[in-house]
């Protein structure tokens, strides 16, 4: 693909052409050779969108809640990009991406873009290409970008590194959600949403959460709100949406947003460097050479650290 084609993709994305937005996302997801060029063209136009992460255990009704939230946001004419992530099979690499089903009315809304992604081997609840997809939607002019994670509970760490606002969804009756929260997911929430609030046990769950928050490390002023919602009955959704937007404007004002973004960018930079480094090493070292090294390690003839050091040395030398 030549530069003209990349330019075309970039310019079409910037005017919001959905076909090209979709294409660009695919190219980034597939690590096409033009990926870096595309990002280069789009990046100056990024930074406007508010990125919202929705996480929580399977069965919490996240997708339905996302649909209801977008309904709400659309009423004030905010353009929404939605990224729905489902786990890829570790055995076959395939995935069933079925979250779109829960928001059929948004498919034909011109102000909404929905993209389903498989994790494709990543373990943190997001897909590897999620950050880049956010960039595309950001540059395309979407005001809010909502990421719905896989929701396996314990491994939901990546979302903090990608979203400005993280909403943790729980639902009464799922039993061990409180345990899940104890395991560290507690710290990542900006807002707790208790879904299916019209069912038995909802008020108990709300109380339990509030108690846990009080007992945790949050300074009083920074305690995340606990908001009961019923996505199906459309109750509490306006409060949740309001809270999300409110927190965001506060963060913008106080400088918290900038601080957090910069922290996230540092992590992203780190990850890209690591990724590229490993790729380069893999391209420089043949499988055979690698097998020889592994064999030496197995026979305890050399330590892993020395081996790594040698590989890096030869890589850096090779680049001089």
């Amino acid at each position: 693909m030549n530069a003209a084609k990349v330019d075309k993709i970039v310019s079409e994305v910037l005017v919001g052409n959905k076909r090209y937005i979709a294409r660009a996302i695919s190219m980034l997801e597939n690590e096409s050779s033009q990926a870096a060029e595309i990002i280069k063209g789009l990046y100056p136009h990024c930074g406007r969108a508010h990125v919202i992460g929705i996480t929580g255990p399977p069965g919490a009704g996240k997708s339905t809640m996302v649909g209801a939230l977008v309904n709400q946001f659309r009423q004030s004419d905010k353009k929404c990009g939605i990224i729905l992530i489902d786990p890829s099979s570790p055995f076959t690499g395939g995935a069933i991406l079925g979250d779109r089903i829960r928001m059929p009315e948004h498919t034909t809304d011109k102000g909404v873009f929905i993209r389903s992604m498989g994790t494709r081997g990543s373990l943190g609840g997001l897909a590897l290409a999620t950050r880049d997809t956010v960039k595309v939607l950001d540059a395309a002019g979407y005001d809010l970008i909502i990421i719905e994670t896989v929701g396996i509970g314990q491994a939901e760490t990546d979302i903090v590194q990608t979203a400005d606002t993280v909403v943790v969804v729980s639902v009464p009756g799922l039993g061990d959600h409180i345990q899940t929260l104890k395991a560290g997911v507690m710290e990542i929430a900006d807002i707790f949403a208790v879904n299916k609030a019209d069912t038995d046990g909802a008020s108990k769950t709300v109380r339990e959460l509030k108690l846990m928050i009080e007992l945790s490390n949050y300074p009083a002023a920074e305690r995340p709100p606990v908001i009961p919602v019923s996505s199906l009955k459309n109750e509490g959704i306006d409060k949740l949406a309001g809270s999300i937007l409110e927190l965001h404007s506060q963060a913008l004002e106080s400088g918290r947003f900038e601080k957090r973004r910069k922290e996230q960018l540092a992590i992203e930079l780190n990850e890209i460097i690591r990724w590229q480094l490993i790729k380069r090493i893999n391209s420089k070292i043949s499988q055979h050479e690698l097998d020889v090294s592994i064999n030496e390690l197995y026979l305890h003839q050399i330590t892993p650290h020395e081996t790594a050091h040698n590989i890096l040395k030869s890589l850096l030398k090779g680049d001089e």
């Binding site: 395939g94 995935a95 069933i96 991406l97 079925g98 389903s116 498989g118």
Partner: peptide, 10 residues
């Protein structure tokens, strides 16, 4: 899916 494809089921 079992053949390695990503299936969007609507």
């Amino acid at each position: 899916r079992d053949a390695g494809m990503e299936v969007i089921y609507t």
